[in-house]
Amino acid sequence: MSLQEHYRSQARELLAAGAVKMVVGYAEGTTPERRRPVFITEPEECSRLVLDARCRTNLAGYLLREGLLSDGREIAVYLSTEGVRTINILAAESQLSSAQVRILGFEIDRDEVKAMEGKRAADFSEAILAHKERRKKQAPDELAAKLEAMNAAERFTFWQGEFSRCIKCYACRQACPMCWCRRCVVDNNQPQWVNTSSHTLGNLEWNLVRAFHLAGRCVECGNCGRACPVDIPLHLLNRKMTGEVLEAFDHYPGMDEHQEPALASFRKDDPETFIL
């Protein structure tokens, strides 16, 4: 049985038995290459569930829709390792209880989709640890390497070009499973720390603040980059932050649900080579 079929039947059983009230998964999209999230509550609808290498979206963020988990019942959700890490972070930040999240785990390896064993976020700790080790050794991608090789002025010009295209649609925020503040800092106008106008300065400020707020929290799922209508390589900023907290504080976001946030904790011997 393919993994798609296997998970369809699992989803069906879970719904039929009343173990979960909903399954959040993937369905066919508007074009053959696209997959879109689907929210299934009836066992007979489970045949709509799709699972293949095109299922890239991190679905964890949907669990935070106001009131969805407030009845204490469980929801099953298709999650990759990034998704499971998201659950851990959301649990660590008290946004949900991991006991309410029944995981249908999968991993995409090139064009193949593989099962990941486990039901609860805590069952995936080995896989997450392996990801951390891999991430430590991972070289920057081509564009990131190119940027690192530039001087400051060139980098500034690069980002100026990218951010000049930003239209402040906040799709990146909407798509990000970590952007769950009841009120985003940009929506606070007393004082207005981030310029709301969509000029390059305001766009730069917005994107820097977003990257800072995600430092030590971003799981690099890529939702923001895929959502950006003008194709700004947002992942570069987030990857830079993830690399920094990993190197400086040995912090890999979402290891488990008790992990303290990188920016609300400290060690007395944290590195400080840049401080005069």
């Binding site: 930040e93 008290s94 946004q95 769950w180 503040c181 009841r182 009120r183 606070n188 303290e260 946030p261 920016l263 609300a264 904790s265």
Partner: peptide
């Protein structure tokens, strides 16, 4: 309290 999401980062910090 209207805008707090209860993430408890402040509690830790």
């Amino acid at each position: 309290e209207a805008t707090c999401s209860g993430c408890w980062g402040c509690v830790l910090a």
